[in-house]
């Protein structure tokens, strides 16, 4: 089976400071990988490098996405090829409605795949169906993207966009941050509804709480730019119980 994503010895830095110091990670179709770790361990940097943020420089290593060199692609091509980043802090875009934004995004992806744009009626029906997954009110479609949305609404909007773009690899960057328990459940249900045997997910989180709802196949612990532990879903529970300090201590000893 061809992996969806294969990260080998990935090193990345920003402004001359190395943040990722040799990441190795392979995701097979159907798998959900959780990436946990204390603040500053490099979790969000990993998400940013995969999505193609220019501020980061990859100094070493490779990332292969569906057999193609991911690092060679522009951010928009990565998205069109099926990579999706759910932002930790979704951006407000004044004057651009959610509907208009998604129409541009979906049609850009379709054009990339040689498909014609969706008919307006067809597109509207699809949006309404997918919004229901995260219990979003269709009134949001006409509002400026994320402008004046609450924290929970922004995160739901991210998962709604994911449902519209049907990515083969979704990276959820601290999607649980700032969510109350009800919003967390809604968001997690929306994500779970999109799990298929063909796609993969990277769930980046600080806390184990989210993983009660989105149950991972594999859990990685990132610390100081490296994956220092990999295990099953129980690893998350151990972390919740013991904190990150024991990992830091053990990793320092190993290092």
């Amino acid at each position: 089976m061809t992996p969806i994503l294969e990260i080998t010895n990935l090193h990345a830095s920003i402004d001359g400071t190395e943040i990722l110091k040799g990441i190795n990670l392979t995701i097979q179709p159907g798998e959900v990988h959780a990436v946990m770790g204390p603040n500053g361990s490099g979790k969000s940097t990993l998400a940013s490098v995969l999505a193609g943020r220019e501020e980061y420089t990859v100094t070493e290593g490779t990332v292969v996405f569906h057999g193609h060199d991911l690092l060679d692609m522009s951010p928009e091509d990565r998205a069109r090829e099926g990579l999706f980043l759910a932002f930790q802090y979704p951006v407000e875009i004044p004057g651009v409605s959610t509907a208009n934004f998604l129409k541009s995004a979906v049609n850009a992806q379709r054009a990339h795949r040689g498909l014609s744009p969706l008919e307006p009626a067809e597109f509207l029906a699809l949006m309404k169906e997918r919004m229901a997954l995260v219990e979003m009110n269709p009134a949001f479609l006409q509002r400026s993207l994320n402008e004046g949305f609450s924290g929970g609404e922004k995160k739901r909007n991210e998962i709604f966009q994911m449902a519209m773009l049907e990515p083969t690899l979704a990276i959820l960057d601290e999607t649980d941050s700032g969510l109350d328990i009800d919003a967390l459940r809604i968001v997690a249900n929306g994500v779970n509804a999109q799990r298929t045997p063909h796609n993969g997910m990277i769930v980046i989180t600080h806390y184990q709480r989210l993983l009660n709802y989105i149950v991972p196949d594999v859990v990685h612990v990132l610390w100081n730019g490296r994956i220092v532990r990999t295990g099953g879903k129980d690893l998350a529970l151990t972390l919740e119980e013991r904190g990150y300090d024991w990992i830091k201590t053990e990793s320092s000893v190993e290092a």
Binding site: E76, E92, F101, S104, Q109
Partner: peptide
């Protein structure tokens, strides 16, 4: 915001 749109498949100029 430009990057956010790029991350959804919209090219930079658009």
């Amino acid at each position: 915001a430009v990057f956010y749109m790029q991350a959804r498949g919209i090219d930079r100029a658009a």
